[in-house]
Amino acid sequence: MPTYGPPFPGSSEPWQQPEQVYFEDVEEGMELPPKTKGPLTVTDMVVFSGATGDFAFIHHDREHAKGPGGLPDIILHGQCKLAFMTHVVTDWIGLEGRIKKLGGNYRGMDVVGDTVVSQGRVKRKFTENGENLVELDLWNENNRLGSTVTGSATVSLPSRSSR
């Protein structure tokens, strides 16, 4: 594997599985532990381009992004923004939780130098067809622009009573 150093805070620390969250522990309005990515570097964006094969110039070529592209700088890929937001959810639901549906609207451009903090809050908890479901509000907070992605998810969580 090529070495390009740990691209994001925390990514070089030993992994610790967060404690499993159970449906009973969830309260509406509860906040999910946030995750910080950045400050984003050109390398971070190129690494994502390489991993995904997305070589659209707006994600790696500054001269073209700023010139013909009319953009403020190289911008972060939509798929990467969504993956950042999803990371908060996968860590929170743990190994026994499942994402049923998750989506985001791309509202602003994250560029080189920006720091993105992905966040989430419990909107509603309910039981449907025997499944313990939680609706989440999700967003990515950019240090310059405010939220650059707003989204939501529905997840299912294990119950303490069914253990």
Binding site: P7, P9, W15, V47, F48, A51, C80, F84
Partner: peptide
């Protein structure tokens, strides 16, 4: 992909 998004699970 995991490296590119900072995922370490």
């Amino acid at each position: 992909f995991c490296k590119a998004i900072g995922e370490t699970n």
